[in-house]
Computed example of a mutant assay.
Amino acid sequence: MDYVFQGQTYLFSSTCVDALSSNRQRNFLAKEIGGQLFARFKEGVIVVEIATVTSGRSRRTKFGFWPDREAERQDIARLFKDGLHYIGDWHTHPEKHPTPSSTDIHKALEIFKKSQHELNAMLMVIVGQARFPDGLFVGAVTALNVSACNKTDW
């Protein structure tokens, strides 16, 4: 699956898509969950290969997810040694067609500004309850805002 933002293509691997899909909140009692996205840069395309699930002391409720930032930093360091770059976060929403909340946008902008990177944009992915692509929001986070990316291939 491909998304484009300002001419940059993000290609999600089937492994990554499967990980996101398997974590959908499928029933009324399911709690939000989330993690990070890791990619390799190949010939003008950012290949999103891995969607981790943040462990450690993360807190989860039906309407919220608060990741263990130390556990996330450890994942970033470990996967960077394997040539994978942290490019953003993902989490679930208990709605069919997810959209970012004001809290989601605020957190994403804060992460973009505080992270050490050379990216023009980071990703924010929200996994909803509907089957993909309808149940997936892919947004590009810049220093100024969060914008939906355009789907190009399914």
Rank of each mutant, 00 (worst) to 15 (best):
M1L: 00
D2I: 01
Y3H: 15
G7Y: 01
G7L: 00
G7S: 07
Y10C: 05
Y10W: 09
S13G: 09
C16M: 13
V17R: 08
V17H: 06
L20M: 14
S21N: 14
S22E: 05
N23F: 01
R26V: 08
N27A: 08
K31H: 15
E32A: 14
G34I: 06
G34R: 08
G34N: 09
G35S: 10
L37T: 01
F41E: 10
G44N: 05
V45Q: 12
I46Y: 02
I46H: 04
I50P: 06
A51W: 05
T52R: 02
S55K: 01
R57D: 03
T61M: 05
T61K: 07
F63D: 12
F65N: 09
R69P: 07
E70R: 09
A71Q: 11
A71C: 12
R73P: 11
D75A: 11
A77R: 12
L79M: 09
D82G: 15
L84M: 12
L84T: 08
H85G: 11
Y86E: 00
Y86I: 00
G88E: 01
W90H: 03
H91N: 09
H91E: 05
E95P: 01
K96A: 08
H97F: 13
P98T: 00
P98F: 01
T99L: 09
S101I: 08
S101E: 12
S102A: 15
D104E: 03
I105N: 10
I105Q: 13
I105H: 10
I105V: 15
I105D: 10
H106N: 14
E110D: 14
K113A: 13
S115P: 13
L119W: 04
N120D: 10
N120Y: 06
A121L: 02
M122N: 14
L123W: 01
L123F: 01
M124V: 05
V125M: 06
I126R: 11
Q129F: 07
A130M: 02
R131W: 11
R131N: 15
F132E: 02
P133Q: 01
D134N: 13
G135L: 00
G135C: 04
G135P: 08
L136E: 06
L136H: 09
F137N: 07
G139K: 03
A140N: 11
A140M: 09
V141K: 10
A143K: 10
N145Y: 05
N145D: 14
A148I: 00
C149E: 10
N150L: 00
K151T: 11
T152K: 15
